[in-house]
Design a binder for these strands. Structure first.
Lengths: 211, 211
DNA sequence: ATATAATGTGACCAACAAGTCATATTACTT
DNA sequence: AAGTAATATGACTTGTTGGTCACATTATAT
């Protein structure tokens, strides 16, 4: 947790510090990240960072929280928690999600790395928290599908979830890699390519899971 | 690459050094691993390690190579490169692979982490090499399936590959996690559970990819 | 305007670990 | 057995960086 001093800071400085921290952690990993560099990129002195956080680890932990909270806000806005078919899930918000990636590549990438367990040894709780949230949502999608009869009911939810996650995570990572290639500035053709890509994924998901 | 001195060492010492290194890297990651600890666990002095390798990075790189070569031997023996159906692939060698995990959990886990890109920034070449080998094999499986008509041909190989990898990687990780829970000492019940687990995965894979 | 509190700063300190090297030990050679 | 080459060793050096702190600056209160 940040110290009192950090919380009293104006929003601009808070944001500068957090973004500089995330940028550094994302680029070099926890161990090789230097407080000095973070401070410099945030436009403050090294000593100031220690007025804000007890130590490097606390700064890192709060970076995770900060990124997480950012997405909580955005996602809440984007995906109303109404009942939805598993397959609409991806096809629907694909543009919005792409826009988000374009707007905040750093935060998206950082969160992905956290979620994928890259910092598991540091951020155990934050990590499993992040994971649990997604899981809950996906389990509900699966449950909906079973009730509607669009998803086979001969397999455990747990297994269907693994399948679903395995496929979507892999495709998501691939999409992010490709998006990075064109520096998050997609042409209309890129967009169509991505959409067809997602359609293929959904087709495989759907066919695999249907009765 | 190791220095001349290392290559002239007797096999026992070489193995002790490499296993101590892999154990340390696997447990603490590259940055937090200490040469002193590796030396101690291998039963040699710190200075000796520097007679064998130029620096820590070289030791790490060779650890990857060493683990990789170990598996090349084993896998070559286990999976004859004959044509095989995608779905037999998993059902067939599952016991053997489980035995391997039981015999060499350290090497299996380390290789998995390397393959999954945990050390991507260090072992770029080794990493992509490892990846390419698996990919080639899997692409051939997919191609076979298409020719036999057991796999749908309306989707690119590349996309089918992603699907295949996404699912199998996720399930493999889950199996490894569970195996770790019972310390790689499966009862017959565990075995059956794993087999049923793999069958479910294959069912999802098959149904998703079939015409 | 003065006093007091809060925040900013970067030179400095201490710890830690990678890498070196002079010396000891062991293995070969003749 | 004596001499030479290869290997082993761990105390020492050195660079790095997390974290501290005495002092400077700015904000707030009276």
């Amino acid at each position: 947790m940040p110290k009192r001093t950090f919380n009293r800071l104006d929003d601009d400085k808070k944001e500068r510090v957090m973004r500089a921290a995330i940028e550094e952690f994302q680029a070099h990993g926890f161990e090789k990240s230097k407080i000095e560099v973070i401070a410099h990129n945030a436009g403050v002195a090294k000593g100031s960072i220690y007025q804000y956080f007890d130590d490097k680890k606390e700064l890192f932990l709060y970076s995770v929280t900060w990124a997480l909270e950012y997405f909580m806000k955005v996602i809440d806005r984007q995906t109303p928690l109404k009942d939805m078919d598993v397959y609409e899930y991806f096809l629907s918000g694909s543009r919005e999600r792409f826009e988000l990636l374009k707007r905040e590549p750093l935060l998206v990438e950082f969160s992905m790395d956290v979620a994928s367990g890259k910092y598991a040894s540091l951020a155990k709780e934050a990590n499993s928290e992040l994971y649990r949230i997604g899981e809950e949502y996906e389990l509900r999608l699966i449950d909906n599908g079973k009730k509607r009869g669009t998803i086979r009911d001969d397999l455990d939810d747990k297994i269907l979830l693994l399948f679903f996650q395995g496929v979507t995570e892999k495709f998501t990572r691939e999409i992010m890699a490709r998006a990075k290639d064109f520096k998050y500035e997609p042409t209309e053709e890129h967009f169509r390519e991505m959409e067809s890509f997602i359609k293929s994924m959904v087709s495989l998901l759907k066919q695999g899971m249907e009765r």
